[in-house]
Write a protein that binds this DNA or RNA. Structure first.
Lengths: 351, 351
DNA sequence: TTGTATGCGTTATCAT
DNA sequence: ATGATAACGCATACAA
C-alpha cells in the first residue's frame, strides 16, 4: 500500500504560475491574464496551450499570493454565538450559499457568547484580511469592530442590533413576531402568561421580545404584566427555580409559558417531564424557533418560525453590496416571523 | 453620526511591518523577530519599544504575506455533508476548540452530500493552501483527495471510512455500538425489529450498522433478518411507504423500529404522529444520535449517543500530529458509543 | 497579442 | 543584538 503520509519521499513541488508559463512557452503575465479571464487579449492558440498546461500540471493559483497582491483575501468571516444552535447553522447555510456563488470562502468562528473569545476571533480574522464580517455579537467588543470598520471592512450584524455602530443589520422583526404571538395567546384566553428568557442584558433581540410582551400585556390590562423570568440556562438549578416560582404563583389558573428561544424551551420541557407536568393539560407552552422537533413533542409545540436562512442570505448580500462600493449609511433589514399554532396552546373555551 | 461605511473618506492605510519598524526605529528584521517570539535575541529596550509601537499603530501581521513566505496558511479546512445536522456541528465544536488552542483558523464547507459541491470545495481549499483537511466525504472524490495528499496535506476522514485511501480516520465504533443496542433489543423480546437507514451506498457507517444488525439477527435466528429498509428522506413519500410496508407486515406483533440516525428518527416520528401511531404502545423506537429532544419526546426515545465532540477533537489532533511530522500509516480511531435506554423501548414482559 | 519589471508584506539568509 | 537583501507567487503598469 502506498504511504501517502510520508513527507520525506520526494520534496514535493507545487506548481506555480512560473511553471505554467514555462510549460506553455509564454510569460507569466499571459498566464495571469488567462487566470483573470481576459480571454479577448489571448490568441485562441496560446489559450488552449495554457489550458492544457494547467491541467497537466494540476496547477491551482495560490490564493494567498493573489490576495497579498490584490489586497483581497476572498474570504468572509462569520462569528456566531453558538454553532450548536440550529438557529445559527441555518443562518450559516444562507451565508454559505451566497458566498459560494460569488467565489468567497467562509471562516466560521464560535464564541460561546464569550466576549474574550469573540475578541480573539475578531483579531484573527483581521489578520487573515477578511473581505467582510458577519457577526452575531456579544456587544462587548464594539471597540474592535469599529477598528475593523475603519479599515473599510464591511460588517453585518445578525440577530442583534447595535445602533451606535451604524452597521448593516439583519434580524427577525421581533416586534411584529412577538405581537402576532401574544395576540394569539390573549385570544386563547390565558389567565397567566409567563415569558421565559435568557438574561436580557444588552441583547436587542431579547429586550425587544420581552419589551413587546410587557407592553402588550399592559395594554390588555393583563395580570401577567410582570411575569417575565430571566434565567441563565447554564446555571445549575436557576431555570428550575424560576419555573417553580411561576408554577406556584399560577396554581390552578389557565396558564402558559412562552420561551424566548428553542433551546430554552427544550430545557423547560425537560424539567416539566421530570416534574410530570403535562402539556397542555397542566400548562400551555410556545417558543421562538420552529425547530424540527416542534411538531413531534407532546401535542405539537406552537412556535414562531424565524426566517433564518433568509437572514443569512440577506446578511451576505449586504456584505457583497458593500464590497462593490455601496457607501450608504447602515441599513436595517427586519424579516417577518411566522406563527405556527400547534396543540400546545389550546384555548380556554376548548377551541 | 459617523459614516463608517464611506470608503472614499480617506484612503485608509493599514500599517505594515515597515511602519512598525520605522516607528520603533529599528529594521523590519527586528520586528519579524519579535513577531516570531525570538525574545532572547532582542534587548529589553527595543522589545518594549516595539510593543508600544505595535499597540499605537494597531498593527496586525498579515497572514497572507506570512503564509506566502512560509508556505503555511495556518488554516484548516473542514468539509461536512450537512452542517444543519447536530451531529456535524458537535464534531465541528471539537475541531474548532483544538484549532483555536493551536493558532489555526477553520474554513467550513457544507456539501449537502453533493459530490460536485464537494469537489469544488476541495479545490477551493487547496487554493487557500490549507494546512490540513477534515472531511466527512461522499466518497466520490477520492481522486482529488489523493491529489491533496500528494501535496503532503494531512487529511482526516470523519464518520466514514475509505480503506483504499490510507488516511487517518475517526469514527464511532459502529459495530460495538450497534451490537450493544441490538443485544438490548433482543433482551426486550421484540418479535420484529426494523432497521431504517438512508440509502447505504458506499457509506461505511451505514453499511456497518446495517451489516451488524443483520448478522446479529441471523445469529439469533430472529424473524427480522431482512427487515432492513433503505429510504431517501428527501424523496417525497418514500419513507412513509417503507414505514407502511413494515407496519403492515408486523401488524399485531411486539415490534420496534431502529433508525440509523437522529434526523431520520424525527422524520419517522412525524409520520407516526400523522398516522396517530403511539409510542411505545403501537411500536417501539430507538435511534443513533442522542439529540437534545430525545428525552422529551413521548416516553423518551432510546438512543445511541455518538462521541461527536470527541471525534472532532481526535480528528484535529491527528491533523496536528501529521503537521509536526508523524509519517506513520493511516490510523483508525473508533470511539465507543453509549446506549441510553428510555421509555420508547419497553420489554415484552412489561419490565 | 505578448512580455518586462516592480511590488504586495512577510520571513530567512547572511552579514556585522 | 541588529540590519540589508532576496524570495515567496501572483497582478499590474508600462512597453513593445
Amino acid at each position: 500500500m502506498e504511504d501517502v503520509n510520508n513527507k520525506s519521499s520526494k520534496p514535493f513541488h507545487r506548481s506555480t504560475i512560473d511553471d505554467v508559463a514555462r510549460g506553455a512557452g509564454v510569460s507569466k503575465t499571459t498566464i495571469s491574464r488567462y487566470l483573470s479571464g481576459q480571454f479577448d487579449s489571448l490568441s485562441e492558440q496560446t489559450r488552449k496551450r495554457i489550458e492544457e498546461t494547467i491541467a497537466a500540471l494540476k496547477y491551482r493559483p495560490n490564493r494567498m499570493a493573489r490576495g497579498l497582491k490584490r489586497d483581497k483575501s476572498f474570504t468572509i468571516g462569520m462569528i456566531v454565538a453558538d454553532i450548536t444552535n440550529p438557529f445559527s447553522t441555518s443562518i450559516l447555510r444562507g451565508v454559505e450559499d451566497v458566498c459560494t456563488k460569488n467565489g468567497y470562502s467562509l471562516m466560521v468562528c464560535n464564541t460561546d457568547n464569550d466576549p474574550e473569545k469573540e475578541k480573539e476571533y475578531i483579531m484573527m480574522l483581521q489578520a487573515h484580511r477578511i473581505d467582510g464580517l458577519i457577526i452575531n455579537s456579544t456587544g462587548q467588543n464594539n471597540e474592535y469592530l469599529h477598528e475593523l470598520a475603519e479599515e473599510k471592512i464591511p460588517i453585518v450584524l445578525v440577530d442583534r442590533k447595535a445602533p451606535e455602530l451604524n452597521f448593516d443589520t439583519v434580524v427577525t422583526d421581533n416586534v411584529q413576531a412577538t405581537t402576532k404571538a401574544i395576540e394569539f395567546f390573549l385570544e386563547q384566553g390565558y389567565d397567566r402568561i409567563a415569558f421565559f428568557t435568557q438574561p436580557i442584558g444588552m441583547v436587542s433581540s431579547r429586550s425587544e421580545r420581552a419589551g413587546t410582551f410587557q407592553k402588550m400585556l399592559e395594554a390588555a390590562n393583563h395580570p401577567s404584566t410582570s411575569d417575565i423570568y430571566e434565567a441563565d440556562i447554564r446555571a445549575e438549578g436557576q431555570l428550575e427555580q424560576k419555573i417553580d416560582e411561576f408554577l406556584a404563583s399560577s396554581e390552578g389558573q389557565f396558564r402558559m409559558l412562552f420561551a424566548a428561544n428553542g433551546v430554552m424551551m427544550l430545557k423547560i420541557l425537560n424539567i416539566f417531564q421530570l416534574k410530570q407536568i403535562r402539556i397542555p393539560d397542566d400548562i400551555g407552552v410556545a417558543c421562538y424557533d420552529d425547530l424540527d422537533w416542534a411538531p413531534v413533542i407532546g401535542p405539537g409545540i406552537t412556535t414562531i418560525a424565524q426566517p433564518t436562512y433568509s437572514i443569512g442570505v440577506n446578511a451576505m448580500e449586504r456584505v457583497l453590496a458593500r464590497i462593490i462600493g455601496d457607501q450608504s449609511p447602515g441599513v436595517l433589514i427586519a424579516l417577518p416571523g411566522t406563527l405556527n399554532v400547534r396543540g400546545s396552546t389550546p384555548s380556554k373555551a376548548g377551541t
